[in-house]
Design a protein around this nucleic acid. Structure first.
Length: 532
RNA sequence: CGCGGGAUAGAGCAGCCCGGUAGCUCGUCAGGCUCAUAACCUGAAGGUCAGUGGUUCAAAUCCACUUCCCGCAACCA
């Protein structure tokens, strides 16, 4: 079996409800997965949730429920949102899964046995209320500890550490020899720079059970649980069937078919140090060879009014007219789940930051989706019904404009593949909308609504209609990775269904055969107008 | 001299790697069309490409410096 295309997302922390940032990343990865499938390659898409840790434990206590119950509630919110937005991973991570815990413990035991994990003590300022050590970053401008920390005292604690520093030179070498380890390239530069002045610092991987009980116990010391890194990051391999000799591997894929990962899709906030330093070094320490290192795709953030997205600042945003707020559900309520998917992927150039504004959301929806694409289908089906009784027939009629339209459509797949080499989905979408514009222009220039007045022009009218309808059929397939529901709705109106396993290579002119009967026109994207 | 990104028509962006008198979408103004979700198509106005200096026959594009904006700053044990 050929190696599958393996794509993952960061796993989201189950401490609060999903917001637009979580949503973008999952929609991006989902569209990437669907696109790669459209090229004919098998794909395994993994996503999920990080459920352990201090904050979850505290939030659960505050809510007065056991952590399991708290985590379940938040997890279900993520699951419901992904379902609504057609984010469909093949594998689903929940770090409380026993299959995951077994792999984590096995890895830790291996590293402990090899002497890569050791115990040492640390002393520092400790906030009793927040149950955590503080550092200088947490101080107020005047150097004092803020009231949110409560009583701060000096405390000493023993913990387990992973010998991260022992592998720093190896990582520097890897970054030099594999310049495409991280995309976009400037992120790799940033990482290399960040490592220049790195000192010999090791990674703390544990917490005493007395402080943190909601986690995976260390296999070699029952007094501690695993702290974040060896729990969360390991999901990428534990749920990929790594070390699947354990008794229960039900539902897990075959490791040999997946690894190495083709794209760890993450936000720029967790590249350094987690995914850029800890993760490759962990893999290296575990014996993963250099040519089996994963690829990392770093995406940007959504800004609101030019500033970083933050809950406290949302209130200062200029008033919205039709959106309730920028919650993913609120946006989908107005422009639909595909409208939201389209906006997120059309608006952001993969790897960079973008602004999130109501104006842009409505523009993308009303102008591009409703006016250009939706209206194209609508006007065409309407004319086909009037002039052709909705039946496609063969004619010899042809001219330069027909040829030009066919050429544009024929070039779409290869252009899309080219753009997707750097995951520029926004460019693929721009091509699709541009093609729809060309089809609108084609209609205006050839004017079938005028030709139809004279029966002698019947072949020309039939040919024009057929060209536009065929174009829309191609567009429906091209746009399906981003708007899966819309693709189906377009096809339903065309009276056509693309085969489930259709690939870009199947997109030859003539998807709709002679005698094909078109369906009824129905506005695809009802306009969203602000209240008067 | 901490690191990275950005500064291009009223707005949002592309072009910069591989120098050759600036492009896309929206908005504005004017026109066309009438099949269509008051949708579609065409044309026009609008920019000395943040600033200064340098390299060059020629710079938005290369180099240096400056200004402003955004984000990050691994050791949260």
């Amino acid at each position: 079996m050929a190696k599958q295309f393996y794509i993952t997302t960061a796993i989201d922390y189950t401490n609060g409800a999903p917001h637009i940032g979580h949503t973008y990343e999952k929609v991006l990865a989902d569209a990437m997965a669907r696109f790669v499938r459209l090229t004919g390659r098998e794909v395994y898409f993994l996503s999920g949730l990080d459920q352990h840790g201090q904050k979850v434990q505290l939030s659960a206590e505050k809510a007065g429920v056991p952590p399991q119950e708290f985590v379940r509630g938040v997890s279900d919110k993520f699951i419901a949102l992904w379902k609504r937005l057609n984010v469909q991973p093949d594998g689903w991570v929940e770090t409380t899964d026993p299959r995951h815990q077994r792999v984590v413990q096995s890895l830790l035991q291996q590293l402990f046995d090899e002497g890569q994990i050791y115990k040492k003590s640390f002393s520092g300022s400790y906030s009793v209320r927040q149950e955590q050590f503080l550092n200088d970053k947490d101080r107020e401008p005047d150097g004092s500890w803020g009231p949110q920390w409560g009583l701060v005292e000096e405390r000493e604690e023993e913990n387990y550490y992973f010998r991260l520093s022992a592998h720093a030179d190896w990582l520097r070498g890897l970054l030099e020899s594999q310049p495409d380890f991280i995309f976009p390239a400037n992120r790799q530069t940033q990482l290399v720079n960040a490592m220049k002045d790195s000192e010999g610092v090791d990674l703390c991987i544990s917490r005493p059970v007395s402080r943190l009980s909601w986690g995976i116990p260390l296999p070699f010391d029952a007094g501690y649980v695993t702290f974040v890194w060896f729990d969360a990051l390991v999901n990428y391999i534990s749920f990929a069937g790594f070390r699947d000799a354990s008794p229960d591997t039900s539902g897990l894929p075959k490791w040999e078919n997946l690894w190495p990962c083709d794209a760890h899709v993450i936000g720029k906030d967790i590249l350094i140090p987690a995914h850029g330093i800890y993760w490759p070094i962990m893999l290296h320490a575990l014996g993963v060879p250099d040519d089996q290192m994963p690829k990392i795709l770093v995406h940007g953030f959504w800004n609101i009014d030019g500033r970083k997205f933050s809950k406290s600042e949302v209130a200062e945003v200029k008033p919205l007219t039709v959106l309730k707020d920028f919650d993913p559900h609120s946006i989908a309520d107005v422009v639909g789940s595909d409208g939201l998917r389209y906006f997120l992927l059309a608006e952001m150039k993969t790897g960079q930051d973008s602004d999130l504004t109501e104006e842009r959301i409505l523009f993308r929806y009303n102008k591009e989706l409703a006016d250009i694409l939706g209206n194209l289908l609508h006007r065409t089906l309407n004319m086909a019904r009037k002039y052709l009784n909705s039946v496609l027939v063969a004619t010899d009629h042809d001219c330069e404009m027909h040829q030009a339209l066919r050429a544009t459509v024929a070039a779409l797949p290869s252009r899309a593949v080219e753009h997707m080499r750097e995951w520029q989905i926004s460019e693929v979408l721009a091509d699709i909308i541009s093609t729809a514009r060309q089809a609108n222009e084609f209609i205006d220039k050839t004017a079938p609504f005028k030709l139809a007045k004279d029966p002698a022009n019947a072949p020309a009218v039939a040919s024009i209609m057929r060209h536009v309808v065929e174009t829309v059929a191609h567009l429906s397939v091209m746009i399906s990775p981003v708007m899966p529901d819309t693709a189906k709705r377009i096809q339903a109106q065309l009276g056509w269904t693309a085969p489930d396993n259709i690939t870009l290579g199947d997109l030859k002119w003539g998807l709709l055969p002679d005698g094909h009967i078109l369906g009824e026109p129905q506005p695809l994207f009802p306009k969203v107008l602000p209240p008067a």
